[in-house]
Amino acid sequence: MNDEKLIYQGAEAKIILSTFLSKTVVKKHRIKKTYRIKEIDEVLISSRTKEEAKLIHLARKQGVCVPSLFDVDLTNGIITMSYIKGDRVKDIFDTIDKKKRKDLCIMIGKNIARLHNNDLIHGDITTSNMILSDNKVFFIDFGLGEINHELESKGVDLHVLMEAMESTHSKNANDFEFVLEGYEKEYHGDIKRVKKKIEDIVKRGRYR
C-alpha cells in the first residue's frame, strides 16, 4: 500500500491510515521496543495484539461501538480495522456544554457496564481511547484489556477512568459520578459492591 499515512504515534503503537480492499482503514502497528529484551517484547506484542482483536470482537457482540476488524497479523503486531471518523472525547470533553457532557458520561458508563456484564475488561479506559462519532461513543485501544469475571478488575477498570478524568479533565472530574450513573443503569450485578470496590482501590493507593 503506497498511500499510508501516520496519523498518531502513541507510546505503544503507530496508528496508520491506509486502505484495505478499497476501504479506508486504520492499522494499529505495535512498535518493537529496543529498551526491553526480545523475550519480553515479542511476547507482549503478539499477546496484546491477539487479546485486543479478541476483545474488539467480543465487545461488538455486546453492542458496544468498536471498529470493525479486517485483519490481524500476530507476528508483526498489526491489527487492520475500520476508520472511525469523529472527535476524540479527550479533545471535546471540557469544551462541550454541561448537559452534553453529562449525557456523554452516562453513555460512557452504560457502555462500560455492557462490557463488564460480559467480563470484558478494557484495561485503559481514558478519554483518549474514546471517539465520539455520530453521537455514539466508540471504544478503541483494548490493548491492555482482558477477560476477567472478578469484581476487582471491574473496579480497577473504572478507577483508571476516574484517575484519567482527575488528571486530564481536572475541572470536570466530578462528572465521573455520571459515568457511574450510566453504569448503574446497565450493570447486571450489584452496583453497591462496584462502588465499594472503587472506594477500596482509592484507599489502597498510597497515601490516600
Binding site: 504515534q9 502513541g10 507510546a11 529484551i37
Partner: peptide
C-alpha cells in the same frame, strides 16, 4: 530487573506520550 524496569519504562513513556 528486565521485567519490572521494562514496565516502569513503559508507563513513563505512556505518560510522556499522553
Amino acid at each position: 530487573q528486565e521485567t519490572t524496569f521494562a514496565a516502569l519504562t513503559e508507563v513513563t513513556e505512556r505518560a510522556m506520550a499522553q
